[in-house]
């Protein structure tokens, strides 16, 4: 199953809408609540990153029998140094974003801590793509 969500640049009032929709779907599919929590944290952080940093993007969420795969694709400035971006506390967020309590340099760490696999590809001036995979335990 595949679900696609558009993510608007700069619209913080809609940040979390994709996570909320996908969470409801995962609940309906009877995914383990502990695993839903990990997926939701990862997707939410990815959404906020697109809202805060990119010029817009989308989240493509796929549910397979043994895993959930999320692609977060944006058009935006890209990440010049991914290793630096992965460091806890490192942030390029604007003052406005920080005042809202975002931009503390914890988002990518939260994704890494909750995903089984996190792949980041980015091209400066083009955009960033995150692949997040969370494994689903075998039924029974």
């Amino acid at each position: 199953m595949r679900f696609e969500y558009n993510i608007e640049a700069g619209n913080f009032s809609k940040a979390g809408d994709a996570s909320s929709s996908f969470k409801k779907i995962l609940k309906q599919l009877n995914v383990d609540p502990q695993i839903i929590k990990r997926i939701v944290v990862s997707l939410y952080e990815g959404e906020v990153n697109i809202v805060a940093h990119a010029n817009g993007g989308k989240a493509i969420c796929e549910v397979d029998t043994n895993l959930v795969r999320i692609h977060l694709v944006d058009v935006g400035p890209g990440i010049p140094d991914i290793n630096k971006a992965m460091q806890a506390g490192y942030s390029t967020a604007s003052a406005r974003v920080r005042e809202m309590g975002f931009g503390a340099g914890m988002g990518l760490q939260n994704i890494k801590n909750n995903a089984d696999i996190l792949n980041i590809q980015s091209e400066v001036g083009v955009g960033t793509e995150l692949e997040i995979i969370v494994n689903l335990p075998k039924a029974g």
């Binding site: 979390g16 944290v41 906020v48 809202m100 309590g101 975002f102 914890m106 939260n110």
Partner: peptide, 24 residues
């Protein structure tokens, strides 16, 4: 007051104390 901190570390059923007042 850091949203990612809460996202990463608060537990289900916790009460959240914060000075943030916006929709997120």
């Amino acid at each position: 007051d850091l949203l990612s901190d809460v996202m990463g570390h608060a537990e289900c059923g916790n009460i959240w104390i914060t000075l943030q007042t916006h929709k997120n």
